[in-house]
Design a protein around this nucleic acid. Structure first.
Length: 270
DNA sequence: ATGGTTGGGGTCCAA
């Protein structure tokens, strides 16, 4: 039994479908989880992906904003789209993937796009920051109440929080910048503990190694300045942790033409 | 302290 899964905030799947095809040809994942597809379900480029052998889809779409999709070579069943914070935003989709050789249990995939939270880290001044904290709190409550991480489960996505010191280019100067404030870090850590989940990226690449998955569009010379953040995550439930073989950050896509500001992260389970 | 860029939809909002 082996499975390769990729997570990538694509920032418009229609604009960047050729980059998705390029990544697929390079790494041949079994499952591809995208965030910020930014299109309606009918506009999703399914046929281009089906031509590459990906014929199974679980899509939670909305016009113009957000949107998440699981694309798979293997069948997807029990598709669930959970509505967090009663907002009607398309920020979660999950499905069971039937892995060859793992006939006893399927693996449940959860694909998340956590709200970015706006610019000001104050719930009184900025409702978007409150929404983000509520979303993280609701995730934690759900993990507890439904035992989401009791069986084989992988949680991936753009969680929009860089929790550790070496998940950002400067811990000190980002303490009051949304994505790295102590209250967000606390909320994300609580959600992780409520699984409990294993932070697969940091298990393979422990601190103090610097690990980034996002570089702002606003920084020219993104590579030279290297002011990145680790906003994208791969979490494994306890029953899957012994299968973790490798994690790969595909930084080179940030240098492709018309790039997403996020790069793909690959996890291999054996 | 400030401003920097991108995408979608439509002349502004979200990131």
């Amino acid at each position: 039994m082996a499975i390769r899964l990729v997570t990538w905030n694509i920032n418009s799947v229609r604009l960047r479908i050729s980059s998705v095809e390029r990544l697929i040809k390079m790494y041949s994942p079994d499952v591809l989880c995208l965030q910020e597809i930014k299109c309606r379900e009918a506009e999703f480029p399914s046929s281009a992906l089906a031509d590459l052998g990906y014929k199974h889809f679980a899509i939670n779409a909305q016009k113009g904003y957000h949107g998440v999709a699981i694309i798979s070579r293997l069948p997807l069943t029990n598709i669930l789209k959970k509505n967090f914070c009663e907002m009607g935003d398309a920020r979660h989709v999950s499905a069971d993937v039937e892995v060859e050789g793992a006939d006893k249990f399927p693996i449940r995939i959860h694909n998340f796009y956590v709200p970015a939270g706006g610019d000001v880290p104050d719930v009184e001044l900025n409702p978007k920051f409150g929404h983000k904290l509520n979303f993280l709190r609701e995730m934690a409550l759900w993990f507890e109440s439904d035992g989401v991480a009791r069986n084989n489960a992988i949680l991936v996505g753009d969680l929009n929080v860089a929790p550790l010191v070496n998940d950002v280019w400067s811990h000190k100067s980002l303490l009051s910048v949304v994505s790295h404030t102590p209250v967000e870090v606390q909320s994300l850590s609580h959600a992780l503990a409520c699984g409990p989940w294993l932070d697969a990226i940091r298990h393979v690449k422990p601190e103090p190694e610097r690990v980034y998955t996002w570089w702002s569009y606003r920084s020219p010379n993104w590579l030279l300045a290297n002011k990145g953040r680790r906003l994208d995550h791969i979490w494994l439930s306890e029953p899957l942790t012994h299968l973790l073989a490798d994690v790969t950050i595909v930084q080179e896509t940030r240098g492709w033409e018309r790039p997403s500001d996020h790069v793909p992260v690959i996890v291999d389970l054996n």
